[in-house]
Write a protein that binds this DNA or RNA. Sequence first.
DNA 1: ATGAAAGCGCTAACAT
DNA 2: ATGTTAGCGCTTTCAT
Lengths: 318, 318
Amino acid sequence: MATVSYVLNDKGNISEETRKRVLDVAERLGYRPSGAARSLKTRKTGNIGVYLPGFAGPVFGEILQALHDAVFPLGFEIIACSTQQSDRLLVERHVDGAIILNSFITDDTIEQIQSADYPVVVMERIVKMPHVSCVVADNCKGSYMAVKHLLDIGRKNIALIVGNPESHENSQRLEGAKKAFQEAGIDISTVPIVHGAFSEEIGVYAMTSILQSYKDVDGVFCFNDEMAIGAIKAAMRAGKSVPGDIAVIGFDDIYIGSCINPALSTIRVDKWSWGHLAATTLVDMINNGSPGRLITLPTKLIVRQSTADPVFGYSNNK
Amino acid sequence: MATVSYVLNDKGNISEETRKRVLDVAERLGYRPSGAARSLKTRKTGNIGVYLPGFAGPVFGEILQALHDAVFPLGFEIIACSTQQSDRLLVERHVDGAIILNSFITDDTIEQIQSADYPVVVMERIVKMPHVSCVVADNCKGSYMAVKHLLDIGRKNIALIVGNPESHENSQRLEGAKKAFQEAGIDISTVPIVHGAFSEEIGVYAMTSILQSYKDVDGVFCFNDEMAIGAIKAAMRAGKSVPGDIAVIGFDDIYIGSCINPALSTIRVDKWSWGHLAATTLVDMINNGSPGRLITLPTKLIVRQSTADPVFGYSNNK
DNA sequence: ATGAAAGCGCTAACAT
DNA sequence: ATGTTAGCGCTTTCAT
């Protein structure tokens, strides 16, 4: 028994002869070690769980890939789970640590599960608990830059299309936008704010309603790229030129935004860095018992055609 | 001990009083059941593993979502893993069954692991083993339709940009294309075939080389959409109009293909159906011990602007 | 260099 | 209705 275990794990002193014999028999019997039994005994799995609200969408794949690439050389594997209607997987702890990117998981649940040997990294909000680290984009600053950019290119009547109100990202982005308006001496109560949700469809609806209710709007900041893409489609269908009549800027920098026409200006959150930071932070907590900390990821303004200054920059082929 | 187990699993006869007491104490102690111990004992996990070559890319997210949605109402959860450099997760069997969408996993490995209580569904090739089902798109027929479509709109000099040669999908698509040329009385040896790999970048290179070496090519069939998008970009950068000078068609029907300009014609593989078929097949094997079977998923021609007949259809805004 | 034995946290058959 | 117990497949300490 023990000998077999040693052989299979390259441990202890085993004569070459028995080594061979064990390996042979294992092969012949088609032996496969049981992960469950091993991790029950060792209290380690070598796995890191990532808990998402779903798998679809333009962002998660990229982040998962970044997490995987960061974690694999460190001896861990990524296990991705969709956790909306059940958090069984998160609670049952088939992994050594958790990465959460999912507003469906409550602060309460996180508080319950986080512990010295089940450290957690949260990527989409800020929670303060001893064994939880937060690795979040600087949504406030990013949002500030987006509004400032619209003002800089001379837009006077800017509208906001905001996302799901209960999300932390949304409120941070709102705060940043407000700050930019304030600094420019614009009364926030005069800014049209259309409440939406983070999807392309909603972007279409929101822009349509803006075109109807606020005829003089010449710039729109959408709180994510998917809404922005919907907004551009709606504007063009309504016969407006982008950015000629209306400049549009998004947030996140999803790949598809660079492919559409006009290409979408946006606030970039670098998914590679985001994933790497989250991953290395978690592995550090797992391996060294490091306490939770807060890390903010910088954002960057990416100017493309959808906000190109009509005088100096590209113009839309309307 | 047993009583606690009964309470937590809603089993056996437990007095309301002890039920409460147990739940209370569990709460107070922050008790979380160990998935490892439970599945070691029950030999069930309630989880299904999906093994991908990576998380990035426009296709996997959609398929994972379809798998999840199909499987969740049946009492299972999806666990997604990237399995290129290690198949530890697949072998250690933290799940009740496996879904494989990954050419990095060899037939040998599949043969080793598949068994009555570790059934497998393969989605990207065909293997014949007792406990393995295959749910594959009809790549051959789809490919046939793509070439036939280019011929139908009057293209005389068609080139092929093919993908990774070792993949089963690629060889099936090649076969279908050859059949279409044959039927049209075109000698296959006269058809330019550019060998590539399934990525946008490669599509750019491949189209560039076609434009240099085969000046009279007026139609290109790319073996997936990502290459097709790259090909369109390359053609337009070279001053060609699509579809005016060169019609381009892809394969898979990824979302972004419908957003670009010109919108990409393609062969649709419905990810929802694909995922649902794979998922329900696997659950049937898990629950009922059903033997492996072969299921083929139909494909469908989607005509958009990139192959629109210049006479009757849309024309590109060149 | 190898074998014996305990125990990880749970479930389920059995006894009470 | 509740408690006792064996054992799932492994690792690791200890004895040989």
